[in-house]
């Protein structure tokens, strides 16, 4: 394997157990190669932020790991299961152990928030209705939504509330890994900071591994243990944010030493 996982960040990872192991990944749409020979390790219990310029395939990588996009080449192992070659049953088992929160929530528009949070439980668990309802109410309150939000439909919620509801649904099955696609995009700075705090708290209290695609430098400084930079079709470098300013690559330099980065660093 080439130097995609430079040893910069290894010492900072919470444990040395690997939650997600991606090797030699290649994604291609028509003639356009998005990823080639991409390697990535996500350690158990860490918050990994994925950054990269527009069109470097951050979301594609997330979608590939959770099985929404079939890669042209490569292997992906999540919690020890080879998800690309697993049987249907094995896949369903490992799918229960992760949750995904999409950028705009992707809540089911025909269901209330409570029903949305209950949907994965209905599908995967055989529990009496009242227990599922109580558990769903618990998740809704854990993500900081008011009690009455459970009876609302997604169209009646603000952007920030939708994202929180989506997080509640992602946490419905008490997953070990949470995938977040641009969790703070489209939120005002106050809402974004509150959401960062929420993710940080939940991550610590529930012992989650968080795989987060983001643009938000504040989030990177506030909650990410390690950062993986996507550039040149692969993971250029991974490591804690302090290391990033020392990486000799034009995009990385611009991103982590630009005026916005300095502002975020000041706050963080």
């Amino acid at each position: 394997m080439d130097g995609a996982n430079t040893p910069l960040g290894e010492d900072n990872a919470q444990t040395d157990e690997v939650a997600i192991r991606v090797r030699g990944l290649k994604n291609q749409f028509g003639r356009q190669v998005v990823h080639e020979n991409l390697d990535l390790d996500v350690m158990k219990g860490e918050v990994l932020g994925i950054v990269g310029g527009s069109g470097t395939g951050k979301s594609v990588m997330l979608r590939t790991i959770v099985g929404l996009n079939r890669p042209a080449e490569g292997s992906i192992e999540v919690l020890g299961v080879d998800v690309l070659h697993a049987s249907e049953k094995e896949r369903r088992e490992v799918e229960k152990r992760w949750g995904v929160a999409f950028q705009d929530g992707a809540l089911f528009s025909s269901l209330t928030v409570l029903q949305n949070v209950m949907a994965p439980m209905r599908e995967h668990l055989k529990l009496p209705h009242h227990i599922m309802k109580s558990l769903a109410e618990l998740k809704i309150s854990m993500v900081g939504l008011p009690y009455y939000a459970g009876d609302k439909y997604p169209s009646e919620l603000s952007g920030g509330m939708k994202k929180r509801a989506a997080l509640a649904r992602a946490l419905a099955l008490d997953p070990e890994i949470v995938f977040l696609d641009e969790p703070t995009a489209g939120l005002d700075p106050v809402g974004a900071a509150a959401y960062d705090n929420l993710i940080g708290e939940l991550q610590r209290s529930l012992g989650l591994t968080v795989f987060m695609v983001t643009h938000d430098l504040d989030s990177l400084y506030a909650i990410c243990d390690r950062i993986a930079v996507l550039a040149e079709k692969k993971v250029l470098v991974t490591g804690p944010i302090e290391m990033m300013t020392e990486i000799d690559h034009p995009w990385v330099q611009e991103y982590f030493t630009g005026p916005r980065a300095r502002a975020a660093q000041g706050k963080g």
Partner: peptide, 11 residues
């Protein structure tokens, strides 16, 4: 709205 993707990830 990625609802269909969300369904797939929920099995």
């Amino acid at each position: 709205q990625e609802e269909i993707d969300a369904m797939r990830t929920l099995g």
